[in-house]
Amino acid sequence: MGIEEQDPQKALVRWQALVAGDRSSSRINPATLYLANLPSEASRDTVRSVMRSLARMLGYATQVKPGALPKAQVNPETVPWQRLDRLVVLAVRELLRQDGKSTATINLYLSVMKGIAREAVRNRQMEEHQFLMIEQVASLRGSRLPAGRALHVVEITKLVDHCLSAEGLAGIRDAALLGMLFGCGPRRAEVVTIDIGKINFAERSVRVIGKGNKERELEMPERTIDLVTTWLDESGLSQGALFRPVTRWGAIVRDRRLTPRGVYDVVTRRVKQAGLDNASPHDLRRSFLTYLLDNEVDLSTAADLAGHASTDTTRRYLRGQKRRNRQAADKVDF
């Protein structure tokens, strides 16, 4: 039996037994070094989530009660990452594949493990030949069509109106947030970076921090400006983060900004309350792109507005092409 054909669960059990006494180390954990070297807080949030999942897979989750593995109790720094080897990485890749994870997700997990191993080598906690064996584990190839759905403008209007009809500041904030997500198309990790001082109402633009810690400028339609202006007027905010948590009693938490997870919770909750089919923050971004392309905005402009490095990514949101493909297929008569 070849190395890649071995039972992945048995490979992880073998590794757990091998490193059972390695939970503590006098040196800084390579996972901490890897996180510190990432360019943005959004990247660190994503990688922390991956590390927690990996820690659970590797058997380093702290149980509060039998059968419970709450995410908050998983500390990636308890994992002896410096003892990773090629068999463990292959086992993780196979278990993720068996679990039905997407190619992109599996490759993200591989990238994180390789990045941690690289930091372990730099910190003289792992032999270079051990790292090279890990680095040679191949990423998966292929891609999948975008999941989710594009909301119709009627649904967006219903969603915003529902928020505005809700009592308290939370509804006004959520309407502005939804207006920003659909009207400008930022990622949820980008929308939480918006500071009030980065909004140019005269130029109808706003600056966000995107992937790779790069600042980019978004154009704001009039409806989005109206919703944001209403939020600022009602909240009394004049500087700092645009979107902040609101307590159940309607008080703004002024020393914190909304998190990407908070954005997800707001959108999914409001969608459910408005009686719409399931939708996520990325579906609002998808709706933004689909609306542009359906209205014959060229691919290059749409890609620039979305912050896509390549128009190939933007092309995947072309519904018009799908309709033309269907019409062409209907000509095949037999």
Rank of each mutant, 00 (worst) to 15 (best):
T224M: 11
T230G: 05
R149N: 09
P245H: 08
P186R: 05
A17M: 13
L38R: 11
I199K: 06
R149K: 15
S40Y: 09
D7S: 11
K114V: 09
S43K: 06
I28N: 01
R326Q: 14
T193S: 12
V88K: 03
E155D: 15
R315V: 01
E155N: 09
L177G: 02
R244G: 00
D233I: 10
V112F: 05
R124K: 13
R286C: 02
I252H: 02
A170C: 08
D85I: 07
I209P: 00
L284N: 00
K71V: 11
L159N: 02
L276Y: 03
Y34G: 00
L169F: 08
A274V: 05
K158T: 14
A170D: 10
P8H: 04
C163P: 06
G262R: 05
T314F: 08
D99G: 15
K211F: 06
A202M: 10
A329V: 10
T313Q: 06
E128C: 01
I134L: 08
N107H: 09
I28K: 10
N29P: 04
P80E: 04
S40Q: 09
T46K: 10
N107I: 11
L35E: 03
Q82R: 13
F334I: 12
D233A: 14
L38E: 07
A117N: 03
L35H: 06
L84I: 06
R118G: 01
K211P: 07
W249P: 00
L110M: 15
Y109V: 09
V206K: 00
A302D: 06
L33A: 12
T268E: 05
N295R: 13
L38K: 11
D255M: 08
R285L: 03
V121K: 05
I116P: 00
L33T: 05
L169R: 12
K198Y: 07
V266E: 03
G320K: 12
R122W: 03
E119W: 10
L12R: 03
L90C: 00
L178F: 08
T103N: 12
L84A: 02
D161S: 13
G262M: 05
E119M: 15
G67Y: 10
W15M: 04
K158G: 07
P66Y: 11
S165N: 15
A175H: 10
M1S: 09
A68H: 13
S205F: 01
R86M: 12
S205D: 02
P245D: 09
I196W: 07
M51N: 01
D233M: 14
R323F: 10
R83F: 15
G115A: 08
G67I: 09
T230Y: 05
Q321M: 13
V154I: 13
N213Y: 11
D277P: 06
A11L: 12
R244D: 01
I225A: 09
T32Q: 13
R270E: 06
A170W: 04
V263F: 00
I156M: 12
R323K: 14
L232W: 07
M57Y: 07
K331F: 11
G179P: 08
T290F: 03
L90I: 15
K65N: 01
E217C: 13
